[in-house]
């Protein structure tokens, strides 16, 4: 499993004031994902639940991901830059992107 994923592959900045794509750290992302409560609704492995959709592997593009977190379209609580930095969000993105693809279990 990758421990470090480069996110924001487009040249566009992802956070308000940042010009460079952020380097997300998977392990740090995992910790942040738990610490700030993403796991509550999306599952500890971002696998999704009735309370929030699956986020990874294969997450939506970072710009949409960021928009969904900052200004949620429906019921998700908003995480503003005041409480969750772009760098922390990049870590989270790296974490969800690095979730393993499942093999279809036999049952």
């Amino acid at each position: 499993m990758l421990s470090c994923v480069v996110v924001g592959l487009s040249a566009r900045p992802i956070g308000g004031e940042l010009n460079q794509p952020l380097q997300g750290d998977v392990d740090r992302g995992n910790q942040t994902f738990t610490r700030v409560g993403c796991y509550q609704c999306h599952g500890r492995e971002a696998q999704g639940a009735s309370t929030g959709p699956r986020l990874g592997p294969g997450p939506i593009p970072l710009a949409s991901f960021t928009r969904a977190v900052r200004t949620p379209r429906a019921d998700m609580p908003p995480y503003t830059v005041k409480v969750l930095s772009d760098a922390e969000l990049a870590d989270i993105y790296a974490f969800v992107a690095a979730r393993p693809r499942p093999r279809m279990p036999q049952w």
């Binding site: 599952g43 500890r44 492995e45 696998q47 999704g48 499942p102 093999r103």
Partner: peptide, 17 residues
């Protein structure tokens, strides 16, 4: 649903699926 249930199949804590 079957495909969704497979995500994080081996995770601990155990998934509800």
């Amino acid at each position: 649903s079957r495909a969704d249930a497979a995500y994080a199949w081996d995770a601990s804590p155990v998934t509800t699926a």
